[in-house]
Design a protein around this nucleic acid. Structure first.
Length: 107
DNA sequence: GGTGTGACCAGCT
DNA sequence: AAGCTGGCCACAC
């Protein structure tokens, strides 16, 4: 477990309920904008290291649910988001600019 | 211990 | 305006 992953998880846990963030925003906050892929990779492994990480609150920069296939079922991610009051349509978060949570501004 | 592989993004054609 | 390319780096095999 290295520091990068730990920081990623730490930030994801801080995403408020009913808000979402992006891989790029998290990477940028950590000062490693170009390593945004690692953030996605971290999410991929998050379930085995620490299940309490709300990976469903992290989407790509367009608000697209690119990672839904990595959940238990392809619909689970959307269901979790909708359960928090986030509207999802066509694999995409609606009102994305409204629910977007930017760690570099909010922390 | 080298190589391939991403839940991505920005910049260039 | 839309598609392609490169970079990034931990991890599994």
């Amino acid at each position: 477990m290295n520091e990068f992953f730990l920081k990623v998880y730490e930030i994801v846990r801080k995403i408020p309920r009913g808000r979402v963030s992006t891989y790029g925003a998290i990477a940028r906050y950590l000062g490693t904008t170009k390593s945004s892929r690692l953030v996605g990779y971290a999410m991929n492994l998050s379930h085995q290291y620490d299940p309490s990480i709300p990976a469903h609150r992290v989407v790509n920069r367009n608000g697209l649910l690119t990672g839904k296939h990595h959940f238990a079922t392809p619909t689970l991610m959307q269901e979790l988001l909708e359960a928090e009051g986030i509207l999802v349509k066509d694999n995409k978060v609606q009102n994305f600019d409204k629910v977007f949570w930017d760690p570099s501004k909010m922390l």
